[in-house]
Design a binder for these strands. Structure first.
Lengths: 159, 159
DNA sequence: TGCGTCATGTCAGCATCCTGACATAGCCTC
DNA sequence: GAGGCTATGTCAGGATGCTGACATGACGCA
């Protein structure tokens, strides 16, 4: 019945895909009680660390397009989790900030996500985790991927 | 960073997502000359290892729905990379097999994908790779993800 | 001052993948 | 043999994210 080559089973790339998919699915399930998608959670998390971000900046930070970020922001704003000025203060950018509700929801979401990650790494020691983090970061870097969330052009932090 | 500080840069989950995204992007770019998407490549690869799979079986093997698999198969069949009988032989399942063209295209695709994976792991020794593969597989398993790609339809991972 | 360039927000269209539903073929139980 | 159960193929609709395009505001330079 299973007389196939073991190609896929021994491929790091395939394992990477499977693990990432499993993580995404698990996070999605964990965040469901809060009625939050993974993308929305990421958005809130980035916004907490960098308040006042515009939609375009946030898009770059979360590796999506401006359009997707915009749709995401609209939904979260409608739910009162974040606020944006109706008119731009200086340029065209609309700086976004979390509301009190947003901070609260994010705190709970963070807890849930942390539980998922803890479950994923339950069998790993601290040094195991550090090593895995290192390996994954190296993989992304080797593929010329923006590994840092702050690679926004307007950050003015050239290499 | 008082009590809820989650630094994205030191999160294994985040690194996993970034690495997987980078890999997918790189594979997509590598396969573009063959006019093949990653999903299509996966489909061909699974089909090579397990000829005669039905659309539903292939869907389970590639972690997508029957509908997605069906659409994928139609496209690949239209391009002459695989063939399916017009009428079911015994049940309703339509066993799918690669054509000669399909085998040829897949061979080239496999080469391109292998180059990408090699680039990703360029700085890793054989034992590094084995360890990373182990870690990723363990992560997926801990999240209750179906790890087996070449298994029978019943993945055998009950809750 | 006037113009070109860039960044941003926004609209429209397209692709992909999903959930939901339905019809049919084979198998199992009675 | 009849009826249910499961698996498969297929159609319809929706959610999400992308590319392309356009208008506007800030900035740099002749």
């Amino acid at each position: 019945m299973t007389h196939e080559g073991v190609d896929l089973g021994s491929s790091v790339g395939y394992a990477l895909k499977v693990a990432a998919t499993a993580l995404r699915t698990a996070m999605d399930g964990a965040l469901r009680p809060l009625d939050l998608s993974v993308s929305q959670y990421s958005c809130l998390e980035v916004l907490r660390q960098r308040p006042g971000l515009s939609a375009a900046e946030l898009a770059r930070a979360t590796f999506v397009t401006r359009q997707s970020a915009h749709a995401l922001l609209q939904g979260l704003e409608h739910r009162g989790l974040l606020s944006r000025p109706t008119a731009p203060a200086s340029g065209r950018a609309l700086p976004t900030r979390l509301t009190a509700d947003g901070v609260d929801v994010l705190a709970r979401a963070t807890r849930l996500v942390a539980e998922v990650e803890e479950r994923m790494l339950a069998g790993a020691t601290a040094s195991d985790r550090a090593r895995l983090l290192d390996d994954l970061t190296a993989c992304a870097a080797a593929l010329d991927a923006p590994v840092a969330a702050g690679r926004a052009p307007e950050d003015g932090t050239p290499a």
